[in-house]
């Protein structure tokens, strides 16, 4: 039963999901939207509790075992507790204050302020690192080790040169050729991959709905 029940739920809801794709009637559509939005949101809310439990457990284990860089786990747990307290009792922004004071003089630390002044700068910093990672990846990719890497190098060189005014200055039709590489061979390859992805998605869905693929249940029969 432990296995049969999830399989039955997947079969019924999977078939319903596929049927809802071709039936636009509001009765079917509203059930479909309820399942996709409301039910999923409720499940997410419950699983978020498990997620927070997982974070706490993970860091407590690290602290207990004195794993490498374990003091950082204290920072993670304290940050979690403080932001949860501010979020729950301090209000989202000054327009909707909570019972907990979230400003000292001109310094505000309500939820929106934490997000704007800590989360966004930190995320932007990580994103900015991408530029450096791109440079190092490009260096590795553009070493002409074999035929494929050489073709990649040539195509990238043409595209980069075609995108700057110098390219047109040196060879007049170069920007058009670069555009052709992007829109014809590149698009053709992308579409080929997309066909495979589309069929693979349907096949995977079908295998799961029919209970042939049970890897998500840990495999087995």
């Amino acid at each position: 039963m432990k296995r049969r029940l999830p399989l039955m739920i997947v079969l019924v809801l999977g078939i319903f999901g596929a049927v809802a794709f071709v039936i636009p009637h509001p009765i079917v559509k509203s059930i479909d939207e309820t399942m996709r939005n409301d039910v999923l949101r409720i499940i997410t809310a419950f699983s978020l509790v498990l997620g927070v439990g997982s974070i706490i457990q993970h860091h407590l284990i690290k602290i207990r075992r004195k794993a490498e860089h374990w003091p950082f786990s204290y920072i993670a747990l304290i940050s979690l507790a403080v932001s949860a307290a501010i979020g729950l009792f301090g209000g989202i922004d000054p327009a909707s204050p909570g019972i907990l004071p979230t400003h000292i003089g001109g310094f505000s630390f309500h939820m929106q302020a934490l997000y704007d002044n800590i989360m966004i700068p930190l995320a932007s910093t990580m994103f900015a690192l991408l530029a450096f990672f791109m440079a190092s990846a490009a260096y590795r990719a553009f070493r002409a080790r074999n035929l494929e890497a050489t073709l990649l190098l040539i195509a990238a060189f043409i595209l980069m040169l075609g995108a700057v005014p110098l390219g047109r200055m040196l060879i007049r039709p170069l920007p058009d050729f670069a555009e052709w590489i992007l829109t014809v061979p590149n698009t053709a390859a992308k579409r080929g991959i997309m066909f495979g992805i589309g069929l693979g998605s349907i096949a995977t869905s079908l295998k799961i709905i029919l209970g042939i693929e049970r890897g998500w249940l840990g495999g087995g029969g």
């Binding site: 498990l50 997620g51 997982s54 974070i55 993970h58 989360m119 995320a123 990580m126 994103f127």
Partner: peptide, 10 residues
């Protein structure tokens, strides 16, 4: 198996 965060870059 552990949950980390739902923030992409974090």
């Amino acid at each position: 198996v552990f949950y980390v965060t739902d923030q992409q870059f974090a």
